[in-house]
Design a protein around this nucleic acid. Sequence first.
DNA 1: GTCTATACTCGGATAGAC
DNA 2: GTCTATCCGAGTATAGAC
Lengths: 200, 200
Amino acid sequence: MEDKTTEIKILEAATEVFQEKGMYGARMQEIADKAGINKALLHYYYRSKEKLFETVFRAAVSLMAPRIKGIISSDVPIFDKIRKFTDEYISFLSNHTYLPAFVINELNKNPQLIQEIFLKEIGSSFQILRDDVQKLADKGEIKPVDIEHVLVNMISMSLFPIIAKPLLKTMFNKSEKDYQIFLETRKKLVADMIIDSIKV
Amino acid sequence: MEDKTTEIKILEAATEVFQEKGMYGARMQEIADKAGINKALLHYYYRSKEKLFETVFRAAVSLMAPRIKGIISSDVPIFDKIRKFTDEYISFLSNHTYLPAFVINELNKNPQLIQEIFLKEIGSSFQILRDDVQKLADKGEIKPVDIEHVLVNMISMSLFPIIAKPLLKTMFNKSEKDYQIFLETRKKLVADMIIDSIKV
DNA sequence: GTCTATACTCGGATAGAC
DNA sequence: GTCTATCCGAGTATAGAC
């Protein structure tokens, strides 16, 4: 971390600590230590713990948001979008396993902030999706489904096995490699279930 | 709460507050107020906040385990078991909303303890279910499905909307009452999806 | 067993020198 | 910009009277 500005060093250290400990578990002292500076500097650059957290969190969400937007607004058939979504979403989460638990924890402790960030980043995508599905249903190309349930189903089945990985690994007696295969299998399985539930 | 012993009053108050605020958001003062006693008494009976929480937590898990066991080992057709499961599971979680988030949080911090509690409480149920499904598949009454995926699907779709409630409420622009209806609707919807995915 | 009063600890925030 | 030293509130925990 030697060449970077203090501001960047702090941000990187904070990202690590917040990801590991969450907003409330994280200690300003630990962040300062990891960045190789002292507590006072944290406040000099970011004013408060809350502001620092917000900066870190926005950056993390911004990683996923454009990919979701890209898939939803892409010009391909709805079934392809669904396959693409489960595929990319599960892949992304597999490589950022800390994120879901992180979001869920913070959601309970600081709902306002998390909601605001999410709505800003992906709220519009949801509206686009809702309209698309409505049009397809009107044309009779899919069932007249409730998009809210469909979306919740798709996200649920993709996300939960990532969050509950430690528990499920033990319960199903799987090795790390086996669990990766299990997740890989789910990409198609989840997409198939969703598609089955909306196709005419 | 007048007639109960102080110990019970504390436990009930703590359950309410923990459900609402979670382990970290909960304040001992609030629990004391709700129980109609003072903070010192909390420590007299439960030594520390952590011990109090653990007591509440174990009680909650123990509440659900026998019901799951009961459903799985009951002598009714598999489709009825599935309907009964989604129904009771979603109802239970709606009344213990803090539980999933806590479990997930602890899974990251203290995987051993949580896994041990879960395996002890519901591990055997899973084996029973696995055997049942195998037999039915052999008899050709259901598809030869992978029980692990089916189980994960069922739990995912029931549990996620509880965890993500604050976010989904905002995103879907629903009132508390509307969200309850949304969850109520899911009981049948999830069961239908699971049944569709395994019926011949 | 139950209370009041208070001690103690942790951790975020700030003042002020350099 | 960076540091040391310090403040101060929040919240858990305990002492001791009744």
